[in-house]
Design a binder for these strands. Structure first.
Length: 560
RNA sequence: GUCCGGUUCGUCUAGGGGUUAGGACACCGCCCUUUCACGGCGGCAACACGGGUUCAAAUCCCGUACCGGAUACCA
């Protein structure tokens, strides 16, 4: 039997973190078993379902990389079938018409509606005490004649499943084990509303049957629904699929993680837009409620697929930990850490396309960074550059190309730069914000960095331009046009490379009788606008000779 | 109210009769260094509670507490 699973979100908002994890687990299970991963949009709640929501969910899934293996099913398209099935159950005597007038819903705000409904349910239950019977619907056993009369009078009716007096439903949950529920705990659930619209439990069962679903993997909030659905399966004479329920993902206070209360932080598109890598986020999500019983935490998609199993899913809820009013911890620290971990350890070949997209959207991308153009603009021959394309293992490449100064703005320079700055970055956004100075002359100065590294040492205002002069004389730049390679040493001058820069800066610092760090960090802020980054020698080199002179001489940072 | 689940560091988790209860994130400290959010080393920090069973319980059983879910003509 081929496994067929589905992810079935209802389009009443964006794709949130819990749904995303459900989608992930379904996807992993399908891939692990060689089965099919299907997608069904449960848009039967006409009042709440929206087209934007469907789009947003689809976007979220696309970002995460969970493409369905078959065409998307829209549940609302199957309403006629669902209706027909309800009628069939009615005709078979397995369901009955309930003429009880529908209790009109409060016109309460959509926001508070759910809570007030739940409160009402509790109130009702408390008031009823133990007296309440799930089998006391007055229309459960009315005669066909009476029913016909009422229909003739135009009385609207809902169709309810006729649950037997005695017995229980039972199923073996893939995660929670044996689940039993006495019929006395299950009401005669409504299959079809009095306005003719099918209800969730009916629709789900019908669609799952039609789609040939073999395993239903969904949130634990559906655990009790499952009993109702099994009743429908039985009434239909169809063997139920295997069910596996997932623990829920909670807010930091262990309460419900809701779109309304917690907003953006639970939306998938937030993470996409915040510069997260889908592979990193998937990895994070996989570890929320599942583990392979080992200490490894970083998993490639292939590893997740091969290691995933229902047995590894927990029964207890997990907390998605974040601090609402703390920008530094606006989302779960582990998610952020994992994203950073991916950024600094993945191969450059995998990272570059993401950086490219980010720089493009920030208008910082230049065609010169394209590898294809290297041959046209490169003046530094690079044999490593060719092996780069041939090989996917390029993690240690930067060390091999760091030997010679690279022309600013070329593909090789680009690779070196990305590799140098990524170590301290957390998201893709950092490449265009903190890393902006590497790609543009138009960058801002972080006030904290200016205060710490510049204004604290007023001497620097004169010394840094002097350092520029020193560079100029040592590296003899005046004969070369802006943007050219500083020097490869062939003209008799010193190459503008780390070792040489170090010698010059150290000599300069000693003359001034100052600490090296003060000069270096002053220069760091002048050159990059921030207080953190790679080794300053590397920064000098990748910012390049001409830009270094220009920025050291600039007074912009000094004028608040 | 009733039914169903759950409970190991702040968070994610490993461990399922004998462990100094392990790892990761976060936090703190030290080191490296020209800075740092990189890296290295270290620290803080947990078996909800009460009974049993057992030579031995975080682990098995019962109860309690707390948390969560469900209980809709929502999904």
């Amino acid at each position: 039997m081929t496994v067929r699973v589905r992810f079935a979100p209802s389009p009443t908002g964006y794709l949130h973190i819990g749904s995303a994890r459900t989608a992930l687990f379904n996807y992993l299970y399908a891939r692990h078993t060689g089965g099919k991963f299907l997608l069904r949009i449960e848009d039967t709640d006409l009042a709440r379902s929206t087209e934007e929501s469907t789009q947003s969910i689809l976007e979220g899934l696309e970002w995460l990389g969970f493409a369905p293996d078959e065409e998307i099913v829209f549940q609302s398209n199957n309403a006629d079938k669902h209706r027909a099935i309800a009628v069939k159950l009615l005709e078979e005597g397995k369901a009955y018409r309930d003429f009880t007038p529908k209790v009109s819903e409060q016109p309460a705000s959509a926001a508070g509606r759910e809570i007030s409904v739940k409160d009402a349910i509790k109130e009702r239950a408390r008031a009823a005490g133990d007296q309440k019977s799930m089998r006391d619907n007055p229309f459960r056993d009315i005669t066909e004649v009476e029913a016909e009369t009422r229909i003739a009078n135009g009385e609207p009716f809902a169709i309810r499943l006729k649950v037997a007096e005695n017995g229980k439903t039972a199923f073996e949950d893939g995660v929670y084990g044996l689940q039993e529920r006495d019929y006395a705990e299950t009401e005669d659930l409504v299959l079809l509303r009095s306005d003719g619209h099918p209800l969730y439990n009916l629709a789900v069962v019908c669609d799952d049957i039609e789609m040939g679903i073999t395993h239903v993997i969904r949130g634990q909030d559906h655990l009790t629904n499952t009993h109702k659905q099994i009743l429908i399966y039985r009434a239909l004479g169809v063997e139920p699929p295997i069910f596996a329920h997932l623990p829920l993902i909670m807010a930091p206070n262990k309460g419900k993680l809701s779109k309304r209360k917690h907003g953006e932080v639970v939306s998938m598109t937030t993470y996409r837009d915040a510069g997260f890598l889908a592979e990193a986020f998937r990895n994070f999500l996989a570890l929320l409620g599942w583990s392979a019983s080992e200490e490894q935490e970083i998993y490639s998609m292939d590893e997740l697929i091969s290691k995933f199993s229902l047995e590894g899913i927990h029964r207890s809820n997990a907390v998605f930990n974040f601090k609402e009013n703390d920008p530094r911890h606006w989302t779960d620290d582990k998610a952020m850490w994992m994203n950073a971990e991916y950024i600094r350890t993945m191969t450059l070949a995998d990272l570059i396309p993401h950086v490219k997209a980010e720089l493009k959207s920030a208008k910082l991308w230049r065609e010169e960074y394209e590898p294809d153009l290297r041959a046209v603009v490169a003046t530094v021959p690079s044999t490593e550059a060719q092996s780069f394309e041939a090989s996917t293992e390029i993690a240690d490449r930067p060390e091999t190309i760091a030997i010679e100064p690279l022309e600013v703005g070329t593909y090789d320079w680009f690779l070196r730069t990305i590799d140098a700055i990524r170590a301290r970055f957390f998201t893709l956004k950092d490449f265009s914000s903190q890393g902006r100075a590497y790609f543009s002359e138009d960058f801002d100065f972080d006030p904290a960095a200016v205060a710490k590294n510049l204004t604290k040492f007023p001497e620097l205002r004169e010394w840094l331009p002097q350092l520029a002069d020193r560079f100029e004389s040592e590296f003899q730049a005046e004969t070369r046009p802006v943007g050219s390679v500083p020097s490869d040493g062939s003209d008799g001058s010193l190459p503008f490379s780390e070792a040489n820069i170090e010698t010059v800066v150290k000599a300069f610092t000693e003359e001034k009788g100052f600490k090296l760090g003060v000069i270096m960090n002053g220069a760091r802020t002048m050159l990059t606008g921030v207080a953190v980054g790679p080794s300053m020698l590397t920064v000098f080199e990748i910012i390049g000779f001409e830009r270094t002179l220009m920025r050291l001489r600039s007074q912009v940072a000094w004028n608040d």
